[in-house]
């Protein structure tokens, strides 16, 4: 196995171009599991830990800028104050050891339906910057993640940073698993109540091949909310949850049945909206 150890993003792009098919290695929390299971044995690896630019994180004005190599554990403190739902999602990932190693960019690039930060980034409208031989481009999560462990990343590209706008309002992330910690999501929901745009955005995890924005439910709820008083009529949250559950397309597997996943979506969506309304009021 050949290993490249770039220290700049440009070097990383060069290394990727020089070794088509090379595996990007950040925290290794997904990749090394695949290696252990014998699912992947790449001939070359580009290791990103030494690329300082990817480790940068900052709150600049109304924007949080997170390098792709920022770990789950680092999504805390000041960042947690600006994007609490993202911090909650990061806190729900794995064990402390996993959270110390795994990265936001890795979570996106792995593109698992159960990636915990993906629904939050989708609901927050995060912008994902990629750099490759042809330069930079910026994608939404919906544009980046195209299927189960499938992305629109082009050969030679890597994710460099994720930018999230501060939202005036409230945001929530709820994740359902059979264990109280260190568990793969059976279903998750991120709900963002955006008072400036007067819209409620919601994305679901683990109940579709990709993080699922639920447009009909979002529209219904955005219209139902009295944005001056940040209130919703009785039953609106339940109706929203019902629409979200209808939009979900879960599979049944050894972790949970499709019917349970849909029920879980219904329950957590209603709770998430009610919490947002309570928090924003």
């Amino acid at each position: 196995m050949r290993i490249a150890r770039p220290v700049t993003v440009d070097e990383a792009v060069e290394a990727l171009s020089a070794e088509p098919g090379a595996q990007l290695l950040a925290g290794g929390t997904d990749f090394c599991v695949e290696v252990n299971f014998g699912h992947r044995r790449p001939a070359a690896v580009v290791a990103l830990r030494r690329v300082a630019e990817l480790r940068e994180r900052a709150v600049r004005g109304e924007t949080v800028s997170l390098g792709a190599g920022v770990t789950y554990a680092e999504l805390s403190g000041r960042i947690a104050e600006v994007v609490p739902a993202l911090a909650a999602a990061a806190r729900s990932v794995g064990s402390p050891q996993i959270r110390n190693a795994g990265t936001l960019g890795g979570n996106l690039a792995t593109a698992s339906p159960a990636g915990d930060t993906l629904p939050v980034l989708a609901a927050l409208g995060a912008e994902v910057t990629l750099r490759g031989p042809a330069g930079e481009r910026v994608l939404t999560v919906g544009e980046l993640v195209t299927g189960v462990k499938q992305t629109s990343m082009r050969p030679g590209e890597l994710i460099t940073k994720i930018e999230v706008r501060r939202v005036r309002g409230a945001q929530q992330f709820l994740k359902v698993g059979t264990r109280n910690a260190m568990v793969i999501a059976i279903a998750s929901a991120a709900v963002v109540l955006d008072r400036d745009r007067r819209e409620l955005r919601c994305a679901l995890g683990s109940v579709a091949p990709v993080p699922l924005r639920v447009a009909r439910a979002e529209e219904m709820m955005s219209e139902a909310i009295d944005w001056e008083r940040v209130e919703a009529p009785p039953g609106a949250a339940a109706r929203f949850a019902e629409l979200a559950a209808e939009a979900s397309a879960p599979i049944g597997d050894h972790r949970a049945s499709a019917r349970y996943r849909r029920q879980a979506v219904r329950v957590i969506c209603e709770r998430a909206v009610n919490r947002c309304l309570r928090d924003a009021a």
Partner: peptide, 16 residues
């Protein structure tokens, strides 16, 4: 909240 059912997933409010 992490001590409620659901733990780190933060799924439960006290009334649940």
């Amino acid at each position: 909240p992490i001590a409620r059912p659901g733990g780190a997933g933060l799924t439960a409010d006290p009334d649940d």
